[in-house]
Design a binder for these strands. Structure first.
Lengths: 208, 208
DNA sequence: CGGCATCCGTGACGATACTG
DNA sequence: CAGTATCGTCACGGATGCCG
């Protein structure tokens, strides 16, 4: 087997792309930043990826130290994939890409898939340092740990413990916030965001 | 022609990757951040890219508003490619990728190509706001505009006007600085960086 | 049923040759 | 100089099958 395709450039950007430049790789990281996932869950949340490509990417990423595979103790006996610290360091890359991609997001097309937690990364920048926030969208709810240095940065479903804030909004408001077109305070004042919870952020927002 | 391959996900990261996720695209942006380039120059500084792929990428990037093609006035009558403001906004993406890739850079392999200006982006973070800096490596020299909001962020060859600082160093020192393993001041004290020029940075470094 | 491996058709890629 | 044309190879996407 010939060595896998590389750029062969002594440049840190090219080296990074050697590791995460393949199709699907960064989106797999995006998924795993929401916590450990089984193979089947990954396949379900990455519509379009074929089974062999997903398996191949996970193998490459494990070899390259981006993800680990862990067997859950019985009962269950399923294995889950999770991101390593090294893989988690790709968060700034995903945030930069996401910030740049906001301008190209546009309206949701008829063939576009959506998952609620895909909105977590943009909000993470906005809410930096505000603690555990639970977010409710029409597409579902998720939670994010804004400002935590380790552990998962977000997760699907309700927050595991009482969150510092609870936000109810729609995707249009969500993308407007992410693009910086709308300030969170203004969105709350305009009634486009409902605020719950007892953390500092939640109280401050309700004061408006 | 069927619509080109997209992820079809309503997610800003996926949308960004639809536009810049193809092989070579981000490296073309890296090249053009060093200023306008002719087709042949791009081909020479991107070893491994085939002529048709390069032409195809440039066409896609022009259509997507990342680059523009400009015909130089005669004599010369050659056309050059340059990055648009929208394309220039990819700088944070390249910096994040570069910062992450530093850890994987390692030693220069026997098949690795090198260009001096590939070290500009990492140094740009380090020297942010210090003005026009000319950098001398064994591989060549380049200059960078640290902290300018527009215009090219770097360029090959000597600075077009008298730079605020002139730094002479080797690639090992350069990567150590980029990784944050070495502070610029310490590198100067250790004699690993020679400092010239009359700007604030240059004078401060010589004070040590 | 979850976690792949295999097969196959299509498109993307890389090298070379050629042209306005 | 700046690409287009051609072609062999490989990566990708979709479907199906195997095996615990």
């Amino acid at each position: 087997m010939p060595p896998r395709r590389r750029y062969d450039q002594y440049c840190s950007v090219a080296r990074a792309l050697d590791l995460v430049g393949d199709r699907w790789t960064l989106l797999i990281v995006r998924e795993l930043l929401a916590g450990a996932r089984r193979y089947t869950d990954l396949h379900a949340d990455l519509p379009g990826v074929s089974t062999d490509v997903l398996a191949s990417r996970l193998r490459d990423m494990e070899r390259d130290g981006l993800v680990t595979r862990r067997r859950l103790p019985p009962p269950g006996a399923v294995s889950v994939y999770e991101v390593t610290p090294r893989g988690r360091e790709l968060l700034p890359v995903l945030q930069a890409l996401g910030a740049w991609g906001e301008a190209a997001l546009g309206e949701r097309g008829p063939t576009d898939a959506v998952r609620a937690h895909w909105f977590a990364l943009p909000l993470l920048r906005l809410l930096d340092g505000e603690g555990l926030v639970e977010v409710h969208l029409e597409e579902g709810l998720f939670h994010l740990y804004a400002g935590s240095a380790q552990g998962p940065v977000c997760g699907d479903g309700p927050a595991p413990v009482e969150p510092d804030a609870r936000l109810v909004l729609d995707t249009a408001t969500c993308t407007a916030l992410s693009r910086g077109e709308l300030a969170l305070a203004d969105a709350v004042r305009a009634g486009r965001v409902e605020v719950g919870g007892e953390g500092a952020l939640a109280k401050a927002l309700r004061e408006l």
